[in-house]
Amino acid sequence: MHHHKYRLIIPFLLPAALLYGVFVVWPYAQAIYVSLTSWRGVSANRPFVGLDNYQRLWEDDRFLEALSRNGQLLIVLPLVTIAIALTFAALFTQGGQAIRGAAFYRIVFFFPQIIPAVIVGILWSYVYTPNIGLLNGILGGVGLDGLKRSWLTDPTTVLWAIVAVAIWSSVGFYMVIFIASMQSIPTSFYEAAVLDGATRWSSFKDITLPLIWESIRTSVIYLAIAALDFFILVIVVSGGSTTMGATRAEVAALYLYNQAFDKNRWGYASAIGVVLLLLTLLLSVIIMRATRRETYQF
């Protein structure tokens, strides 16, 4: 524009750059340095130990077990969430033919997404509570007393009970993403397919799926990151970061949190954080490559 523009550019950028640099960039950069120390937060001096923390992590069975739980989430969370969200989106949108009640269902299904995670977590912790909880109440009500259990302490159910909550609250979000991209597919594609004798399923498989592939890829990455970050729901649903339920559903980020804020092992905790960050980046790249397909322009 003109030569005085820097008088505007600099003061306008400065607040954002400063806040972002100090409170976002700097802590991430620091995390890497702290992970190379055996710092326990008491003294100002941070004994440098090189890659010791990483080596110990490699031999730490508890960490590896936590990480294997993340591995299971990595498969289940994206698969189930996307399958349900896609089904609903297709029912509401495919070929411009919305099923009866679509508008109502859409609003209802999206609703849990905007509820604070803490409320979702506490609410479900009471759904799962053995004696006064809703789930055992329903099972008892329909005569399935044999299935009643203590969902949040039983080691076989606790993790999946919590994952179910995550799926429950995020299906609506992905459904709306898929609806938006399905709505941009011209109806004429489906009309032509119908003339060729296509079924609902084959139209979905051959028209809808390829044309919304980009949204699905993005969703897989979002959910994969969510599977690695998973932990707020674990501590809220199980009623605390060190409860029996939380320990039996301990995921990597929760282990990090406890090592840091319960055990004051800041160096070790930071190393866990760095490993998770690297895994996140690596995973994003792998998924991007593995799901690459020819994109269709229309």
């Binding site: 976002v24 960039v25 991430y28 620091q30 905790a269 998770l276």
Partner: peptide, 24 residues
Amino acid sequence: VLFYAFIAGLMFPVFLALVPLYFL
């Protein structure tokens, strides 16, 4: 560069920064 530096913040989960953020 500046624009992408800001956007990069979307990639990183908050809890990774928690420990240093607390001390900062």
